[in-house]
Design a protein around this nucleic acid. Structure first.
Lengths: 193, 193
DNA sequence: GTTTAAACTTGATTTATGTCAAGTTGATTT
DNA sequence: AAATCAACTTGACATAAATCAAGTTTAAAC
């Protein structure tokens, strides 16, 4: 159950056998089915979820009822509403499974306790968050700088797996464009080949 | 010189006198004039900069020569190209001073050393990065979900100081819209009052 | 204090993208 | 395999925002 997890963690920091054992105790496994919610708007996000298998998405819904994709997370990625998780405020996000998923959950109090008891995990999350900032910044720059077509090209270059694995309408939402526009962009680009 | 710095750090973690003294040794002060560069595209970002006084901006320039604002940092904020700083790759950003600024700089190696020698600073940066992720996520959601007018209204609500302190054309760029559009939005909104 | 340059505003026009609607393809369920 | 539903495509049209250009205000430089 912890295979993907520890291979990910060991990618960033060194963990002793004892530390691994201790870290394990803070997590509990959970399986969720396709379309099942992990978090619904209005509820407090009480866990960080690590994806061992499957695929999750987080999104919010605006006044017009339109969904806006915030993140996707598959094997080796984390998923949560960090704002709600850290501040204990009700979430404005939904999180659900695009593909049936196996997760490792850690609660708010266990997260804090783990970081204090296993300082190397404090380091792991500092590095993880660092990387997250960098990738968010790139997505943001693309979002404010590029046309719809450029945004799509940029995404295929920086995240080809996402294009392959995520349904097109959700990719469109992730880019902040309509499914129709994305469909036309793809047609235009394949024509050009 | 470290007044703003330690008030910021103490806001997030507890520091002993000894730790404070040690932390100070890793930083060197620097003043830069208005319009002076701290970093230019193509160079490696070798320092994190903490702003004690003044105002910095980071931006990139696209093929058409258009500047896209990435961040602003005034008293109490950090500035860097994190990607370049962490990976040692040449930066794609420019960083310069909008207002004359007093900075505290820490180098890549000193940063790593400080985090290892003063674990509470590891914690500080984990928390700092956490908060950064949340604010970037909000900006991103607004960017992909909202119209130009809604983006501007959202910014006035979440970051009123930015609107007051940053020249309008830079605010427009920060929002990913043209100065003309921002000017028209402001006119429309003041009319409505 | 006058000159010069930069920032901001306003108007006319163009363009990219959104919206609405209908059709097609593909997937899921019975 | 047929039926049902959702995903994707395509076309016609509407609209928000960009572009281009001129004017005005404000700030900087001499």
């Amino acid at each position: 159950m912890f295979e993907v997890f520890f291979s990910q963690v060991k990618d960033k920091v060194l963990l002793s056998e004892a530390e691994q054992k201790l870290v394990k105790t803070f997590f509990s496994p959970k399986k969720i089915r396709k379309k099942q919610y992990l978090l619904q708007e209005g509820n407090i996000c009480r866990h960080l979820a690590f994806v061992e298998k499957g695929l999750l998405r987080s999104y919010n819904v605006d006044e017009k009822g339109i969904e806006h994709m915030i993140h996707f997370a598959w094997e080796g990625w984390w998923m949560a509403d960090m704002l709600s998780f850290l501040s204990n405020e009700p979430s404005t996000y939904h999180i659900d499974a695009i593909e049936e998923a196996e997760l490792l959950l850690i609660s708010q109090t266990d997260f804090e306790e783990m970081l204090l008891k296993v300082p190397v995990m404090e380091r792991y999350f500092r590095i993880l968050f660092q990387n997250n900032i960098i990738s968010k910044e790139r997505r943001l720059i693309s979002s404010i700088s590029n046309s719809a077509e450029e945004k799509y090209i940029h995404l295929t270059a920086t995240n080809p797996e996402l294009i392959k694995r995520i349904p097109q309408q959700l990719v469109a939402s992730y880019l902040g464009i309509t499914p129709e526009t994305l469909s036309r962009i793809k047609k235009k680009l394949t024509k050009g080949v």
